[in-house]
Amino acid sequence: MLLTVPRRPSETPGELQEPHAATSKELREPSFPPRVALCLGERLRAHYSQLMAEPIPEAFLQILDELDQKGRVDHG
């Protein structure tokens, strides 16, 4: 389940949320070159902050606002 190697014959629904427990073998991961980790982290965060910088779609604001107004009517 945790592997990226393409030897998954078929996807069964139960597999999706039930990862097998980490084995001792899995915990002995190769250490990662610090410079690569740093570079990767920067790329990931840059990607993410670009998405974060996008304006919030109006629909989401409305969901929160409508509920607030409905609440006020109910209480008023």
Partner: peptide, 29 residues
């Protein structure tokens, strides 16, 4: 926690390969 750590390690190794940040053989332990 162990599964999370293991996944992070595998994920970043794979992503580094995909982004050509490091040749695959250089990720060997």
């Amino acid at each position: 926690l162990g599964t999370i750590k293991s996944r992070v390690n595998r994920a970043r190794t794979r992503l580094a390969e995909l982004l050509d940040l490091v040749p695959e053989e250089d990720l060997a332990p």
